[in-house]
Amino acid sequence: MTAPDTTPATRTYDEVAVGDTLPELSIPLTRTLIVATAVASRDFQDVHHDPELARQRGSKDIFMNILTSNGLIDRYITGWAGPAAVVKAVRIRLGAPNHPGDTMVLSGTVTAKADEDRRVEVAVRGTNSLGAHVTGTVAVQLPKGVEAR
């Protein structure tokens, strides 16, 4: 492996075991984060950036859009798995909304491995002060090992 030291280490398929837990990732849900991620995902629905309109529609404040929930889970899993990981699936169910001022804590557990295509399934959960914002599973394909490349 000749990658420079600045490249984050990649987790290999053999290093991962069913039952492994991922370190938790705590994400402060600032107003700027909720607006910036909505715009970065090209979602200009008012409930994601305009507090007054969000309240008129029955919400207590603006809330995070779904593309961002997917994006943050993608970041969480590949942050753990490393840059060589290839995301194969992100399946989520939504729950309590992510409002500004709250914090979402992501956690994950490896639930399955499939040797034939080196796929690892991780059960993920993102909770905020209201309960579960998101629950789901992510599938990533990991490299066999450094010598395999």
Partner: peptide, 12 residues
């Protein structure tokens, strides 16, 4: 009025 795309009536 119901929120659009609001994922569940949240437990405040």
């Amino acid at each position: 009025p119901a929120p659009q795309e609001e994922p569940a009536k949240e437990a405040k």
